[in-house]
Nucleic acid binder design. Structure first.
Lengths: 342, 342
DNA sequence: CTGAAAGCGCTTACAG
DNA sequence: CTGAAAGCGCTTACAG
């Protein structure tokens, strides 16, 4: 961060004013072609790099966007982040990442640092704690400083801002229907991600479908670090559960592993559908049928919305996108029309 | 980014000078307790947030570190990034992420933006293209601007800077030995990540081990999007390959899937060891034995090294850490001492 | 204990 | 076509 050449230095070397150098470098038509050329050559020669801090201090925007997500390890967030980064670099923006680790405390700190770091806007997916307690006091600085905010995936209704997510309840409902249509008689919902808006919505959709179908409901919450193998086994053997909608990718994989280890066959004895089309869904044996959450697309759309908002291309009122999704049918579910050969 | 209250405004409101406000807010002992209190109260009331841009322009450092990685989707990088972020926030630094997408072009652009964004230092894992061509011209600005650099995982010998990685060749050698000791007679190396330093090193280690063992060598390069099922099948059936060291997690999983689909049993007919202890290794059936790359630890160490360098806590000469790693034995390899019951 | 002043590296009306 | 000057929001010697 040292001895970088500045406009002043360049000006001295060229015997012209700082203004002239600045304008020349910025291709101002005010400056004569020769001067422009001279200035640029010397700048290149000296590896001149403008000091963005100084530029931003004048222009009042930084072209950087803060991103706060609960984690990066789950495939959904890694992929969303990838989408955000791709779009940002395409649009000439930079991103600063903070991880809330599902905690309000850390989320609050991140908001603080990003705001004083003068980001032009904030893209967030809320922490589990924030969602569970629906506590949003720590987001207050965002509003009082009028920093544009777009929420994606894990949103909260009471927050007024731009939003992008999928219609989780509808998708869960459809996934449950798909399970039914493929021949499942008793379908359960397994969740390893309790207390998030997406879990609530998915459960709601599941319950709705079961109600419409006139079936019985069964919701199981569990800790991903300690899967209830016995419970699942009993559910399949005595309660005749033959279809499971899982709250997310990892939960679905855990359900399948457990069932397989107990000697059941998938999809014959048990059909499974998960959420998020991650790498495990594709490679597990059998491969997992899943509701595609379009993580990358959500990320891209969130970033695009942010930029449009910043650049004033959006109407006054907030926009809310609910992405269309679809079910990717793979080997963990039976074909819709049961085939003789399979 | 609008109407934020500034020191000037606060000073006007309090009828004191800007200097006084600044000092009071920074807990300077020069200022009387009462004034300090008054100033702080008003600042809080007005949600005053210092403008980091202006602060940094004075102090010449930003407490932000640029990170350029080839991708975020592979588990290794997501985890390393997690380590970097965790450590950074622990140490009071922020990180700006750029993804090179394995391309020199994008890597060069990222270097440019990060440097003019005045990061205090740069942490990088090189793109495949950079490594394949050993082209480092686009990194020149880093050196000419004397920006501290730490390379992790995918490093290049000819670059002089701090480095953190694992001893890939040694690990590969040991993994090959482990395969041999567990009873494998003919071991092959399968790589889906050609042209990176880590691949080279791992292959080197494999070849070394095979040489020492007096066995025959077999190296297979493949495109992860198009796994050579037939080839693998033939290798197992006619060439009697019974052990495979894979270059990375995905490659290992692809090898296992293909073998399983061809009707072979793992680890009975074929033992497999991969690199990177990702989520798939743990959940695949059978679970994958793997060389733990300690991604998170590499990330943390890289960041720590960076901060130590920035803060002048390191000796003049560059440091190079080669992390100790270990093999996690799971179900894709046989027990070292073959058991009767298994 | 408080304040006036210079300066960080830029941009941009405004003169000439 | 070129330059002097003000200002972005801070910090920090230096006076008083």
């Amino acid at each position: 961060m040292d001895q970088r050449v500045t406009l002043k230095e360049l000006a001295r070397l060229l015997n012209v004013s700082i203004s002239t150098v600045s304008k020349a470098l910025n291709d101002s038509p005010e400056i004569s072609p020769q001067t422009r050329k001279r200035v640029k050559e010397l700048a290149a020669l000296n590896h001149y790099v403008p000091n963005m801090l100084a530029q931003n201090l004048k222009t009042k925007h930084t072209r950087t966007i803060g991103v706060i997500i609960p984690a990066i390890l789950p495939h959904f967030f890694a992929e969303a982040l990838h989408g955000i980064e791709t779009k940002a670099s395409e649009l000439g923006y930079r991103i600063i990442i903070c991880i809330s680790n599902e905690s309000i405390q850390k989320e609050a700190e991140s908001v603080q640092t990003l705001i004083k770091g003068q980001v032009d806007g904030l893209i967030m997916s809320l922490s589990q704690e924030t969602q569970a307690k629906t506590e949003i006091g720590h987001l207050q600085p965002i509003f009082s400083h009028k920093v544009p905010l777009v929420l994606f995936d894990r949103v909260l209704n009471q927050i007024e801002c731009d939003k992008v997510h999928i219609n989780d309840s509808l998708q869960a409902e459809q996934a449950t229907m798909a399970l039914f249509n493929s021949g499942c008689k008793k379908i359960a919902y397994f969740s390893g991600i309790s207390d998030t808006s997406v879990d609530d919505e998915r459960k709601k959709g599941y319950l709705e479908a079961v109600k419409n179908l006139g079936g019985s409901r069964k919701v199981v919450k569990f800790d991903p670090r300690d899967f209830p193998d016995e419970k699942l086994k009993k559910l399949i053997e005595t309660r005749k559960i033959d279809g499971i909608l899982a709250s997310d990718e990892l939960s679905a994989i855990l359900v399948m592993k457990s069932a397989l280890n107990s000697g059941f066959e998938i999809p014959e004895d048990l059909s499974v559908i998960g959420f998020t089309n991650g790498i495990m869904s594709e490679h597990f044996r059998p491969s997992l049928s899943t509701v595609d959450q379009h993580a990358e697309q959500q990320g891209k759309l969130a970033l695009e919305t942010m930029v449009d908002r910043i650049e004033g291309k959006l109407p006054e009122e907030y926009v809310e996108y609910k992405l269309e999704t679809s079910i990717i049918h793979r080997k963990s579910t039976r074909g819709k029309v049961p085939q003789l050969t399979d």
